[in-house]
Design a protein around this nucleic acid. Structure first.
Length: 490
DNA sequence: AAACAGTGCGCG
DNA sequence: AAAGCGCGCACTGTTT
């Protein structure tokens, strides 16, 4: 049960709904000829893979087992073939205790049929969910009009449907190119994406106010992911490279913030040494370095046994303990008292003007305020940006929203005006409005060159009306048309 | 035919 | 004490 406890929360959602409706009306332009050709190409690739798979002897076994009911797309059948007929060892189970045949499991099986099947599933997902979803939902104006909703997410964020615009592929570069290349700008326009930088981290700080945490975020040169990487992999901070830092950030720090625990982190971080091809200070495998530091192996990672000394899992237990009780002890204490207060009162309040009542577990109680009000910063900004776009009669439109980012379909002549509005609202007005935002919000700028798709977006730097290259501090230009031309060369 | 549970996978 | 949080959508296989 969500209730706005203050007029502010009520107005945020009421006005937010109106602006979401505006986004839905604006719609996202789709490259229709490319959609048709991409679909045909992908269908052919999938057919080929399907035919090749059906020539494999594993498929003959599969047919023998399931007869006419045999289907390459049945994970239930696949699990039976892999783990009961072919004798591969199942390494993970589903929630109901069945052997899991998801991609993580498939990647652990070194077999040509299984690896081809994994590719078949990847392409099938791109076609079935995304290409067909886009095709089905395209309106007569050649645009997608996804719905953006405020009444479905339990965490007080938004959701998107018909199609879900918030899960278009981005991490898998090959699939991302297939799908995001279809999203294009209107005539005389470019696509502009603005992401809040670390807005959930900023909200987290606003709730717990941990001084060390805040110092990490606001002090130039300080870097919590680098320091955690050093502690986790027993390195000096300056020995931490990009890949090592990436692993610490995404396999320890963020999972810990959301309530993960050392055993699952230890396994993920250990696996990353191999996957990320991590190297120690001597340029040889990081495994070797850890061994020299007295870490003999990962450990059994059995939740019922306490970790054996000298294992990576034992080390991670110490790292986790230090993380919550020393490094970020104020944050750790906030988690405990925040939950205790909820248990006592039966509700918790968000900084953005909502009261949350009902049954929630410890993690939900600690995560919802952060996730929810981080999104509310985006929502508040959207309302304000749309009003200013109308006030100045600009023809540029916001066309999509993904929790902490906005997608604009921006007239080339208006690029500078649009970005100035975004900058003013997200970094100045927002901070003034939510005075509890003790970490100043920052916004990032990505633009697709004229004539290019969403996939081709490039990061640029924009400050005080001037566009610059992200690495080369040389001023690009302050003229939007010349700037748009210059974008082609970034 | 429609509804449902289970599994899997895309995103922040 | 338990062991990341939040969404929407496709597909299988069963039940209504």
């Amino acid at each position: 049960m969500i209730t706005p406890i203050r007029k502010e929360g009520y107005e945020l959602f009421q006005q937010g709904l109106l602006e979401f409706a505006q986004l839905e009306v604006n719609g996202i332009r789709i490259d229709l000829p490319l959609l048709e050709s991409t679909k045909a190409r992908l269908e052919k690739q999938i057919r080929t893979l399907h035919d090749e798979l059906q020539e494999d002897k594993v498929w003959r076994l599969w047919r023998r087992e399931f007869g006419d009911k045999a289907k390459l797309t049945s994970h239930r059948q696949l699990a039976d073939i892999l783990f009961h007929k072919l004798g591969f060892e199942a390494k993970s189970q589903t929630e109901s205790g069945q052997d899991s045949a998801d991609d993580e499991a498939l990647q652990k099986i070194d077999h040509p049929f299984v690896q081809k099947l994994s590719r078949f599933y990847r392409y099938s997902k791109a076609l079935g969910t995304f290409l067909k979803g886009i095709e089905r939902e395209i309106a007569p104006d050649g645009r997608l009009h996804p719905s953006f909703l405020l009444h479905t997410a339990r965490s007080f964020r938004s959701s998107s449907a018909e199609p879900n615009f918030q899960n278009f592929p981005v991490r898998d570069k090959e699939i991302s190119e297939i799908i995001r290349s279809l999203v294009i700008a209107s005539p005389k326009s470019v696509l502009v994406e603005n992401d809040f930088k670390g807005i959930e981290v900023a909200l987290s700080a606003a709730y717990h106010k941990d001084p060390n945490f805040i110092s990490y975020i606001t002090t130039p040169g300080k870097d919590m992911h680098r320091d955690m990487a050093a502690q986790i992999y027993l390195l000096k901070p300056k020995e931490v490279d990009k890949d090592i830092r990436y692993g610490a950030k995404n396999r320890f720090v963020f999972p810990q913030f959301y309530g993960d625990y050392y055993l699952s982190c230890a396994q993920a971080l250990w696996e990353w040494i191999d996957k990320g091809k991590l190297l120690g200070p001597d340029g040889k495998s990081l495994f070797r370095h850890l061994k020299r530091q007295g870490i003999t192996g990962l450990g059994a990672c059995d939740p019922d046994e306490s970790p054996e000394e000298g294992t990576f899992e034992a080390h991670l237990q110490e790292v986790e303990n230090d993380f919550w009780n020393n490094r970020f002890r104020v944050y750790g204490k906030w988690k405990r008292t925040w939950y205790d207060l909820y248990m006592e009162r039966g509700y918790f309040d968000l900084l953005t003007g909502f009261r949350v009542e009902g049954f929630y577990n410890r993690k939900q109680v600690c995560n919802y305020p952060i996730q929810g009000s981080a999104f509310h910063c985006l929502l508040w900004s959207l309302i304000r940006i749309n009003r200013l776009l109308r006030k100045y009669s600009l023809r540029s439109k916001v066309v999509g929203q993904i929790h902490d980012s906005l997608l604009g379909d921006v007239r080339i002549r208006e690029i500078r005006d649009y970005l100035e509005i975004v900058e003013q609202v997200t970094t100045v007005d927002l901070r003034k409005h939510y005075d509890w935002l003790i970490v100043p919000p920052e916004i990032e700028y990505e633009i697709a060159p004229p004539g290019k798709s969403w996939f081709a977006k490039r990061e640029i730097v924009f400050k005080n009306g001037i566009f610059t290259h992200p690495t080369n501090p040389k001023k690009l230009t302050d003229d939007p048309i010349r700037f748009a031309e210059a974008l082609r060369n970034i």
